[in-house]
Design a protein around this nucleic acid. Structure first.
Lengths: 233, 233
DNA sequence: AGTCCGCATTGACCTAAGTCAAGCAAACGA
DNA sequence: TCGTTTGCTTGACTTAGGTCAATGCGGACT
């Protein structure tokens, strides 16, 4: 891999657990790779051959039924880790939602390196625990929330996670942002149809809680009210 | 804690990563505790003060909305690990579904010990990754499956996990078992109401796919067909 | 400028699951 | 032994969200 020193996510990715000399070793094992929107990095059910760090862009993790229903089970942002280390086939596919850049490793090479580096494993454990918490919050959404609660929650969540990627000191709340996905993908993430997503968005727009300047943009005009809807308060 | 040597789950819990002398140290930090059905070990939103291994019994992890809707986001069986190590408040409550016995540690003591024992952390990481995969499969269920698919999936899942606890060499498929939860809890786990759970169970009974000898027992009469329903094949 | 084309929106209608309200039966306590 | 409670089932009705079918609209290409 070319150059960890200039990596956009070097302070936030799991690599930040490593000392410079260790990082040099790891960097030899990986390489940067560009991925274009829609490209699939890992197929659901395939043996888990690679893991990666996201440098730029947004990717989805998704599961499908035989008859084609799809559920997005995770969305990864810059500095997040992708893949299933330590054996096992990948129970979900990984596909780019936007053009992206990842720092990719073969799973076996990464596993071997990780075994020797407890600090890296520790970071990975913390990240996995956080991801598990997030997955569980999403289970509540999928199991018990109404369509409008789901949409509101999604907008807040995306705003927060995009905000965390940028400089949060300058822009603590990101009230204007680009959706990293289309309506269908929002539906696949929320367990709704595209039509319901669309209807709920126009409802929020008509209530003047958000604006939709174009198909991909969202402006949050009344964050407080949006949060109230999201938490069913 | 009294005695790891005779612990029912010593070969399967994360403790199995440790050497005898290390285990002796860990055992000093924990103690066995009995929990009765319905008792809550950790409250949702409380600071995470304890972690534990499950020795016997079944517990639920659950999240609630302000207005009282509940979603069960995880079910833990003997040898599973409970709690949120390394800081943070617990985003879910932990409550016993059956009488249970756990081996409990204060979080800080456990964290300290884990930091010194990479093998233990490695086990914990693998377990957390598995748990995350399971949570994601459940997201597919909650987001995209119909009521009958959900019920069928639940019965298969409980049968499998109870089977894994017992001796799977003797009983590879557990076709008769006790549900570790009531109808309401099945609903909370599946994102359904109690009435829908009941109706779907009677439908499976009338199709002669299962039997329901009493409120807590299930007999799987036609596993193949049940699996077909579960996977929407 | 005009015409595709891929999304997104909107409307009319349908249905799976929720709600509300009885019944019912095993377990429980007097 | 008989109420009472607690959990489960069943039935009648409602509804949130899905389905199907137009329609709209902005961006890319000729």
């Amino acid at each position: 891999m070319s150059d960890c020193d200039t990596c956009l996510v070097r302070n936030r990715a799991i690599c930040s657990a490593l000392m410079p000399d260790e990082l040099a070793v790891l960097s030899k094992l990986g390489r940067k790779q560009n991925v274009t929107r829609g490209q699939t990095l890992v197929w659901e059910g395939d043996e888990s051959l690679v893991v990666a760090n996201v440098i730029q862009g947004v990717l989805k993790l998704s599961v499908s039924t035989q008859d084609g229903r799809e559920q997005i089970v995770g969305v990864v942002f810059p500095s997040d880790f992708i893949g299933r280390p330590f054996g096992k086939e990948s129970p979900y596919g990984v596909t780019a939602l936007t053009d992206a850049e990842v720092c990719i490793f073969t799973r076996t090479a990464f596993d071997g390196f990780a075994k020797e580096h407890p600090d890296l494993q520790h970071k990975l454990l913390q990240r996995t625990l956080d991801e598990l918490d997030r997955a569980r919050q999403w289970m509540m959404l999928l199991g018990r929330k109404t369509a409008s609660e789901r949409i509101a929650t999604l907008l807040i969540e995306i705003s927060d996670r995009l905000g965390a990627v940028g400089c949060s000191a300058i822009a603590p709340f990101l009230d204007k942002f680009e959706l990293p996905m289309d309506r269908q993908q929002m539906g696949d993430l929320l367990g709704l149809t595209i039509e319901t997503v669309s209807r709920q968005l126009t409802k929020l727009k008509e209530a003047e809680i958000i604006e939709l300047p174009d198909r991909r943009s969202v402006v949050i005009k009344d964050r407080r009210r949006l949060e109230n809807i999201a938490t069913a308060a």
